[in-house]
Amino acid sequence: MRALALVLAAWWLASRSASAFVLPAPGEVADRAWGERGALLDQVAVTFGRVAAAYALACVAGVALGTLIGRVDVARRALRPIVSFLFPAPKVALYPAMLIVLGLGAASKIALGFAEALFPILLATAAGTSRVDPRLVWTGQALKVRAPLLRIVVPAALPAILTGARIGLVGAIVGVFLAEMIAGADGLGHQMAISYRTLDTAEMYVAIIAVSLVGYALDRAFLLARRRALAWSAEG
């Protein structure tokens, strides 16, 4: 809260010595956002929906593939080279290819968000599941637990998985917003790109603050959910 006040105060001071075109005052930007709140909420909903879709897909794929790599020797040896090649590769370099394959609609935006979110989740899951206490797995075998990967290994590795998942969440937001900025007809990223082209600078600040708030809210919600999910562990 104090940090927010500090940033707002610095912004307000800076806006007094800069032109309103380059840096409008915080109040001006807030007025602007309030005046168009209906349309703004629509854009927030569009971007939020894409982020949620990309993130959900990345969580499912990342945990599934990561568990395979962490626990199944054949999968690890087969997938390691591909994963270690794609992990440091800048995903935005693949975006034109995604545009060509998936078109200009929502699918290519969700794909970039997915690609940005996938690898932190996948690698954290692989590291976490490979370090699960073997006694837990043996106990499961002795008790003939069905689907032991899903019911024993993944829950035991949850602290590590969620660390990667938090990084992935920001990745999903960055990916979707950037994709909307590059090519799109709606969403907060598109709003940012359009207001830049029409030199409507106050609107640029509205868009970037809106997407930051979406990110902040999702991150807070994530931390709350993690505390509940990890109530049993030392990190909870």
Binding site: V92, V170, I173, V174, Y196, V211, S212, G215
Partner: peptide, 19 residues
């Protein structure tokens, strides 16, 4: 300040930097 900046998509700041 870092916690506040963490969820901001940095790539989105490019156009502001241009400004």
């Amino acid at each position: 300040l870092l916690a506040l900046g963490y969820p901001v998509p940095k790539a989105a700041l490019i156009l502001l930097f241009v400004l």
